[in-house]
Amino acid sequence: MVKWFWQRDAPRRTLTLRARGDDGGAMRVDFAELAPELNRFLGQAAYLQLGYFETLTRLIRATPELDEKAAITRAAGAALSKHRGIVDVIRDLGEDSTDLMLPFREHLDAFRRKTIGARPRETLLAVYITAGMLDDFYLALASSYGETGRRIADILREDDDTEEIVEILKRTIESDDEWRSLLSMWARRLVGDTVLVARQALRSERLAEEEDRVEPVYTELMGAHARRMDAMGLAA
């Protein structure tokens, strides 16, 4: 019987992802053998932010309430700002951002389609959950790339302007037990697909033999995910 990482016995060691804005005190896992080549890392990171922006922009059109439109617009703007920041890094390296993103368009678009819910609230939750988990993961990966990685980490730590989105989701959850149950189940469905995207970002030829090295990161991702869920009043 196959066990997912969250079903296994507690890992022998733990890793603490840095809180955004915190530059000290965090233990690091050495990703040197697992981190993808720099251009692959940058291309995926840039395209993920562009995808968040696109999904949030579509949600603006699907949202009738003006205050909610404004909140989603701010979150979309934050995703676009991160995308542009990563693109600037790519250009400073003398690379073309479109060339670097193109290889990942198909599979990341497929992932995004899977996370679009039947209702706007589900999609809003999906962006919040998946962007949070993957930003954390890419922030951990960034330590493998020296000064370029530090620049990307600074970009990923920028404010994502999701506080108002959390409030929108909390109001929805508190208004109706059916919504609470639906969104809780939907969030749990998102986790597997999101972790798969994270795994695909690593060097697959070394992943099996280095599983113990990566597992603490997955554990921390799940811990951060649980805290996001708790903040909204949902069970992880």
Rank of each mutant, 00 (worst) to 15 (best):
M1R: 08
F5K: 01
T16M: 11
T16Y: 05
D22V: 15
D23N: 10
D23Y: 13
A26M: 11
A26I: 05
M27C: 07
E33Y: 02
L42G: 02
A45R: 03
A46E: 06
Q49L: 12
L50W: 10
Y52K: 02
T63I: 10
L66S: 11
E68Q: 14
K69L: 13
R74L: 15
R74P: 02
G77V: 09
G77Y: 07
H83T: 04
R84Q: 14
D88H: 09
G94L: 07
L100Q: 01
L102S: 11
F104G: 00
F104Q: 01
R113Y: 11
R113F: 10
G117D: 09
P120G: 07
Y128W: 12
G132M: 08
M133L: 15
D135M: 08
Y138Q: 07
Y138W: 15
A140C: 06
D161H: 14
E164R: 11
L169V: 06
K170H: 10
R171C: 08
E178T: 10
R180Y: 04
A187P: 00
R189W: 07
R189S: 14
A201I: 04
L202S: 09
S204Y: 06
E205W: 11
E210C: 08
R213N: 14
R228A: 11
M229L: 15
D230I: 05
A231H: 12
M232N: 03
L234M: 11
